[in-house]
């Protein structure tokens, strides 16, 4: 198992290098360098040229790439050309917010998706089954920013149940930073008020992001459970007089979860990308909104660093998914 983890971690390195190279080349193709924007609204051509030299944009792409990789290996993501702040520090401040949002969304998607999917499989072709099918197709089809606004209108404006935006009410002190997740930090430091507020603030954005995921997971779970329920061993169990819930809960469900769990790993990437739109609507201070700003400013250092970090997190999550497979299926564990 340990060997498996180490090999997978090592394999991550060439993947990330490739990702970096691709982003680098794409950014180079997208022409437009940030020097004029940085120089400011009243800049002279000489000022712009000077900044271009400072940033090294006038050098060949390969030289720029080499220099960049060397810096990143040393843990230096460079300085945002636009704000003059260290990109690494900005990301460190924002990444936990995005991760928290993504994990809570995944949790909602997994619990509801697996639940609905299992029930739909058990009550195959019932009204409930059709309902899940309709809702899940709709959940996949609707644009997340639109759902976000609709949820705001309903829960914040009409019903006044949940906050509109942000992570905490304005003026409330954030819990001391331990993990960067307000939910965990507030629990660990005993700040119940902050915990309740962070939970209330995360619900709408997390629900928005998870809708598409609930749909996907429900569909995959349903078909997997349906297949499992048709296997010979379930027929045997039924014949042997096992109660239905015993058959479903430990046996059929466990054997059906491999596909949904793979989906959860893939969804993680999808969730991070939909966080870009959702974070903006809910003012969630994560890397999604940071990335959007960086793109509009042609702030290449920031774009590269965010891409790299998301790539690394994605890679790690997929390793975790493989480990989860091992937990679900002993046969997989033996091969690791």
């Amino acid at each position: 198992m340990l060997r498996f983890i180490i090999i997978r971690l090592l394999l991550l390195i060439p993947v990330l290098l490739g990702l970096l190279l691709m982003t680098f080349v794409l950014l180079g193709l997208a022409e437009g360098d940030p020097a004029a924007a940085i120089a400011g609204d009243n800049a002279t051509p000489e000022q712009i040229q000077r900044i271009r030299e400072e940033l090294g944009i006038d050098k060949p792409v390969i030289a720029q790439f080499g220099a960049y990789v060397v810096n990143v290996v040393q843990g230096d993501f460079g300085v945002s050309a636009y704000s003059n702040r260290a990109v690494g520090a900005d990301i460190a401040q924002r990444l936990p917010a995005t991760l928290e949002l993504t994990f809570v969304s995944l949790l909602i998607a997994a619990v509801l998706g697996i639940g609905f999917g299992t029930l739909a499989a058990l009550w195959r072709n019932s009204v409930f089954d059709y309902l899940v099918r309709i809702v899940s197709v709709a959940g996949l089809a609707m644009a997340s920013f639109w759902i976000a606004i609709m949820l705001q209108l309903l829960f914040s404006m009409q019903l006044d149940l949940l906050p509109l935006r942000g992570r905490l009410p304005s003026g409330m002190e954030a819990p001391a930073v331990l993990t960067g997740s307000y939910l965990l930090d507030s629990l660990l430091t005993g700040r119940i008020d902050a915990f309740v507020q962070s939970l209330r603030h995360i619900l709408l954005p997390a629900l928005t992001i998870s809708l598409g995921g609930i749909a996907t997971i429900a569909r995959f779970t349903r078909s997997a459970v349906v297949t499992t329920l048709q296997t010979e061993y379930t027929t045997y169990e039924e014949a042997a007089g096992f109660p239905r819930r015993r058959i479903v809960f430990p046996y059929a469900l466990r054997n059906s979860l491999v596909t949904p769990v793979t989906q959860i790993g893939l969804l993680f990437g999808a969730f991070i990308s939909s966080a870009v739109a959702v974070e903006a609507v809910f003012d969630w201070p994560g890397i999604g909104s940071y990335l959007v700003q960086a793109i509009f400013n042609s702030d290449f250092q920031a774009v590269l660093a965010v891409t790299l970090v998301i790539g690394a997190v994605y890679g790690l999550v997929n390793i975790a998914v493989d480990l989860a497979h091992a937990l679900l299926d002993r046969r997989v564990a033996e091969r690791l």
Binding site: G32, A36, A37, P45
Partner: peptide
């Protein structure tokens, strides 16, 4: 396009 790339193209 974006402001950043437009202003750099006007060089």
């Amino acid at each position: 396009s974006t402001w950043a790339s437009l202003t750099s193209s006007t060089g």
